[in-house]
């Protein structure tokens, strides 16, 4: 029919996606593929940061984003959303985490809920591209390079010198004012 599906209104994804799904080979067929995705999504919600192959991370990322956005939109009192969470998170403590930790964390977010960083190949390993997939706002130290130059030693020294100079100047001005009075 190639007409857009109109029964459900879905908010736009905040990450780029492939136009077609990746067909991960699996003896259980499309159902098995979805179970593979489920393992990754469940681990991501549980550990908040994980290292996986790029293809799998990129595919599972969309599912995780959609799951979180559904949870934010409908909450935990909506039966279809609860069924979704029940399917996608086989470890049941993650269902509580999704609704009680992640929904408040991402409720007012304007950007994507997940991030992907390139990861190195550690010898010996396969030649598949590795990435680190993580939830935003996780408690781990950041992976991205620090872009601020404030902590550079000469910047710290310069800042300190500037502060000293200002202090000295204000002191002098105060003394001069006292003399005038």
């Amino acid at each position: 029919m190639n007409q857009a599906e109109i029964r459900k209104l879905i908010p736009a994804l905040r990450v780029a996606m492939t136009p077609k799904k990746r067909r991960f080979s699996n003896p259980r067929g499309p159902e098995g593929r979805l179970f593979k995705m489920r393992t990754t999504v469940n681990e991501l919600i549980k550990n908040e940061r994980m290292e996986v192959n790029y293809n799998r991370a990129d595919e599972a990322r969309g599912y995780a984003e959609r799951l979180i956005s559904e949870a934010i939109r409908y909450g935990d009192c909506h039966r279809p959303t609860m069924e979704l969470a029940d399917f996608w998170l086989p470890e049941k403590q993650n269902v509580h985490k999704l609704f009680k930790v992640l929904v408040p964390r991402f409720k007012d977010s304007e950007i994507s809920y997940t991030r992907v960083h390139k990861a190195p190949h550690v010898y010996p390993s396969t030649l598949f591209d590795k990435v680190v997939l993580e939830l935003r706002g996780n408690p781990f130290p950041p992976l991205e390079k620090l872009t601020t130059k404030r902590n550079w030693i000469h910047n710290i020294l310069l800042e300190e010198a500037h502060r000293e100079y200002l202090e000295k100047k204000y002191k002098q001005e105060g003394e001069e004012e006292e003399e005038v009075q």
């Binding site: 459900k8 996606m17 599912y63 979704l84």
Partner: peptide, 9 residues
């Protein structure tokens, strides 16, 4: 299949 649903809308 959340992404299948998304790609159809």
């Amino acid at each position: 299949d959340l992404m299948m649903e998304y790609r159809a809308t």
